[in-house]
Simulated scan of single mutants.
Amino acid sequence: MLTTLPLEAFVCREVMNLYYFSHEAFDPNRHLILTTALVISAMGLSLLTCDLGIVFELVGATSACALAYILPPLCYVKLTKRRTWETYAAYVCITFGCIVMGISVLLAGAKMVRGEGGAQSC
Rank of each mutant, 00 (worst) to 15 (best):
L34K: 06
L38C: 09
T35F: 14
I33S: 03
M16A: 13
T80K: 06
V105I: 15
L79M: 11
L106A: 15
H31C: 05
M112K: 05
A61I: 01
I33A: 07
L74E: 00
V15Q: 06
A61S: 12
K81S: 08
V113H: 09
Y69A: 06
S104I: 04
F56D: 14
G97D: 02
L47M: 14
I54K: 11
A25D: 12
R82G: 05
T80Y: 04
R13C: 11
V55D: 02
A110M: 10
G109H: 07
E57C: 10
V59H: 13
F56R: 07
L5G: 01
P73M: 04
L106H: 11
I33E: 10
T3I: 10
S121N: 12
T36R: 05
P72M: 01
Q120N: 12
C65Y: 01
A90Y: 00
P6S: 12
F21D: 09
G53K: 04
E8C: 03
E116W: 09
I33C: 01
G60Q: 00
S22W: 12
A119E: 07
G60E: 01
C50M: 03
A37E: 10
P28Q: 11
I99F: 15
T35Q: 12
E14L: 09
K81N: 12
G115F: 02
T36N: 07
L34A: 05
V100G: 03
A90Q: 01
A68N: 04
L58Y: 00
A68R: 10
Y20G: 03
V15E: 12
C65F: 02
G60L: 05
Y19T: 15
L67K: 03
L18Q: 09
C122A: 02
P28T: 13
L38D: 09
M112Q: 10
L48G: 01
C75D: 11
F96K: 02
G118Q: 05
C98F: 01
A110Y: 09
R82N: 11
Y88H: 08
L7C: 07
M43S: 11
S41P: 03
L58G: 00
E14Q: 13
H31M: 07
A61C: 08
E24C: 10
H23G: 06
G102R: 06
D51H: 00
Y88A: 04
D27W: 04
G60S: 08
